[in-house]
């Protein structure tokens, strides 16, 4: 691939804008997922009793299960959130940058 085209893309201010926006979004979502996940692992390691708390007063089923399922669901929804923005906003800017560079 021609370095000249890459050079033109690189010099387009929109490229920096795209990279900055996308990186910020992706890393924020990553931080949310990893943060929640490692808090969970820390609770498992240091305070396992907390997770065994019953959901209902006097019940048996513990909050651990819905918390686990909730994490799985939330993380999946976050990937959906990422896709929604990436497929519209980011891909549009991207297409524009490439179009500008090869013309």
């Amino acid at each position: 691939m021609s370095t000249a085209v890459y050079e033109r893309i690189r010099n387009n201010p929109k490229f920096d804008e795209l990279v900055a926006k996308r990186s910020r979004f992706a890393w924020t979502l990553t931080a949310v997922v990893l943060g929640i996940y490692f808090i969970f692992i820390m609770v498992v390691a240091f305070n396992p009793k907390l997770l065994a708390t019953p959901i209902w007063e006097g019940g048996t089923a513990s909050i651990a299960w819905p918390i686990g399922a909730g994490m799985i669901l939330l993380f999946w929804l976050l990937t959906g959130l990422y896709i929604r923005r990436a497929n519209s906003e980011f891909d549009d800017i991207n297409a524009e940058i490439i179009k500008g560079a090869i013309e």
Binding site: T30, S62, A64, W76, T79, A86
Partner: peptide, 23 residues
């Protein structure tokens, strides 16, 4: 519940792959 913890550990790599690696 330990079984479900394992499941969650196996699972959490996926969102990470999505945000940081897939594209």
């Amino acid at each position: 519940f330990d079984g479900y913890i394992y499941c969650i550990c196996f699972y959490v790599g996926w969102p990470f792959i999505m945000f940081i690696m897939a594209e």
